[in-house]
């Protein structure tokens, strides 16, 4: 299933040889198990570096804004949706891109592996037939692939690229799932319960901004956290500051987030930051019937309106 690597290399080689693109953004095999590194390949003799497996959770669309020239990019379903959003926001030009679409069965989450094996020191991992074999000091286990999916992949409804120039394989079957079960559970809580829950969740935040920087949509020249006149949010790890940061960050994702999971994946302390972005995603869908990054010619939901938008909360 994940024999996409050869196909990706083949396409990349062809594109570079025919000078259709100036460079290809893809992955190279990581230096440690369960990690791969984004890479920019500009010469056909370097395409052998390109690699694909279940650990390509980084959203490569993050490397597109402000990049000059014609770019080839290897993109999963969620990545292509991000490209659509970036294109709506004039951060990329579709005709400058060659999208090598990857139908995706979901990326895996190393935190789930660590949890099962009881260690963060995994020496090796391999995959086949829906199973994952993982080994290290004192363990060698065979796990179900489906149990190890990133949380966002479990509920993904756009596994196939929504825009592409070429696919590396046949499309995969889309799933039909309830995306918002956890959000509804929180919505049903009392204010106190909600408050306590989120205080706890964000208490571990170390303000490293990995969530922000892993996101393709955080491209502002100056982030609100760096504004000093006035200062909107303190820079400490005080809970008020941390929550303020996460609220504003999440709100900036309203109607844009494609739930690629890059933020949550990047967090070094395991904060489920998608709980905020998914709430906004749910509201945008329910209130305005909009799903981010699906149609190139749509306007983002906060850049448009309908005269009869819901307003029962307004006196």
């Amino acid at each position: 299933m994940f024999d996409y690597t050869e196909k990706i290399r083949e396409i990349a080689r062809r594109l570079l040889q025919e000078k259709k693109v100036d460079g290809i953004i893809g992955f190279k095999k990581g230096t440690i198990p369960m990690m791969n590194q984004p890479v920019f390949i500009t010469s056909p003799d370097r395409v052998e570096l390109l690699h694909w497996d279940s650990w390509c959770g980084v959203n490569l669309a993050n490397y597109l804004p402000k990049r000059e020239g014609r770019i080839g990019i290897v993109a999963k379903g969620c990545d292509t949706r991000s490209i659509v959003v970036l294109s709506q926001e004039n951060q990329v030009q579709r005709d400058q891109l060659y999208i090598i679409g990857v139908p995706c069965r979901g990326m895996l989450d190393r935190r789930k592996v660590w949890e099962v094996v009881g260690s963060t020191d995994v020496k090796g991992i391999e995959e086949g037939n829906g199973k994952v074999r993982v080994w290290g000091n004192g363990f060698d286990l065979k796990l179900e692939r489906s149990e190890l999916l990133q949380n966002n992949c479990v509920i993904c409804v756009h596994r196939n690229p929504v825009v592409f120039d070429e696919l590396v394989a046949d499309e995969v079957e889309e799933q039909s799932v309830d995306r918002y079960g956890d959000i509804r559970n929180i919505e049903a809580m009392s204010s106190d319960e909600k408050w306590n829950l989120f205080q706890e969740i964000f208490s571990r935040c170390i303000r490293c901004y990995a969530c922000r920087n892993a996101c393709p949509f955080c491209y502002c020249p100056q982030c609100f956290v760096d504004e000093s006149r006035p200062q909107w949010v303190g820079k400490t790890i005080d809970r008020t500051d941390t929550l303020t940061f996460h609220l504003l960050r999440a709100f900036h994702m309203a109607g844009r987030c494609t739930d690629c999971g890059a933020c949550e994946r990047a967090c070094p302390v395991g904060i489920p930051v998608r709980l905020l972005t998914k709430k906004l995603e749910k509201d945008v869908k329910e209130l305005y019937g909009y799903e981010a990054g699906v149609q190139l010619d749509e306007r983002p939901p906060l850049d448009t309106y309908k005269p009869d938008d819901p307003e029962d909360f307004i006196k």
């Binding site: 590194q37 984004p38 890479v39 920019f40 980084v58 993050n62 490397y63 170390i206 303000r207 490293c208 901004y209 990995a210 922000r212 920087n213 892993a214 990047a266 070094p268």
Partner: peptide, 12 residues
């Protein structure tokens, strides 16, 4: 190239 300029490396 790959760096996203977060503070993980420096903070950890």
């Amino acid at each position: 190239f790959a760096c996203i300029n977060c503070g993980v490396c420096t903070y950890l």
